[in-house]
Design a protein around this nucleic acid. Structure first.
Lengths: 168, 168
DNA sequence: CTGAATTTTCAATAATTATTGAAAATTCAG
DNA sequence: CTGAATTTTCAATAATTATTGAAAATTCAG
């Protein structure tokens, strides 16, 4: 396997893996391409490399910027915008956790809060059982939220070093 | 909001959240229904509650069993099969981590292993840069894999207790 | 300012994924 | 065994999600 094939394979499989994580395949491929490309890329570069349309390239680059995974770079003497991915994999992981926490965990806690305020007699078995379940999931979620917040703050130290020792 | 509305809402929103995690919406709804239902349910019960076809109900129940989230229960004097969800939310989280690790993290490490064996002169900047990136991601993944393994073993203790103290 | 270069939007369409429901397979009471 | 009850499969179809590409909007050199 030569370098061109390897890059191709990385991009392709990264996209496949991403779909299992609920991430758009093309967005993951754009990200993969940028991770293994030294110099910043223009929309035209991305279109050419991945064989996708301008609209698609533009949309996914902007979405990657929303996730903080990609930044615009400035180039004087060129009207075109160029983009580069964050290369530090620990930061990448942190940014992804940050966004998913905000987009998924936060709304979940909000939902569970609402549901635990269900009306009715708390001595009723059905209601008791339901609120117990909801409260358990809520407790879990709030805890997970805290753990992730701490991980985000601690950045790359979050699982190097002391983490594993606790469990050994 | 009364109990029926609350249950309805829980099932509906759980399904929506699940799609963001790359999980089939109906599978998540079947799971949600079973989490808030005391007694085991038959395929017919699920069909009626969620307004889905027999094939769909059957497929998703079996998939939930593959994830260890749901078990068959035995009922004498009844030909029908009944199913019940694991109610302990810590176990649920552990089972999900276990499956996702196996289905997603393991293939990823395998891919990265292959890619790091790319042919060519290691003094070539392009090759060097590519293998560096791949190796960084691999190192991260292997580490994540270990952390998750330890968490799975430690079960509910994994984030109660000593975890947070490390970072405080 | 002007207008060419570039980016963004979004309706139409394509691709993918989920669902149905009937036929086939399996199970098990009698 | 038999055959009714039940479960499973899977081709056809529906629903959802992603992509295209041209038109509109924006940017900026001159």
């Amino acid at each position: 396997m030569n370098i061109a094939e390897a890059k191709q394979k990385f991009i392709e499989h990264w996209g496949i893996l991403a779909t299992q994580w609920g991430i758009n395949r093309t967005m993951a491929q754009v990200h993969a391409l940028m991770l293994i490309t030294e110099k910043p890329l223009s929309t035209d570069d991305i279109m050419a490399e991945l064989n996708i349309s301008r609209g698609n390239a533009n949309m996914n680059v902007r979405e990657l910027m929303n996730w903080n995974l990609v930044r615009k770079t400035i180039t004087q003497g060129d009207r075109k915008e160029y983009f580069a991915a964050e290369k530090d994999i620990w930061k990448v992981a942190t940014y992804i956790m940050e966004q998913r926490k905000k987009r998924e965990l936060d709304p979940m806690v909000k939902l569970l809060d609402e549901l635990s305020r269900v009306e009715g007699d708390k001595r009723n078995t059905e209601i008791k059982s339901f609120t117990d379940t909801v409260n358990n999931i809520k407790k879990f979620s709030v805890h997970a939220d805290k753990v992730i917040s701490v991980m985000i703050k601690a950045e790359e130290h979050w699982f190097l070093g002391s983490f594993l020792k606790v469990f050994k």
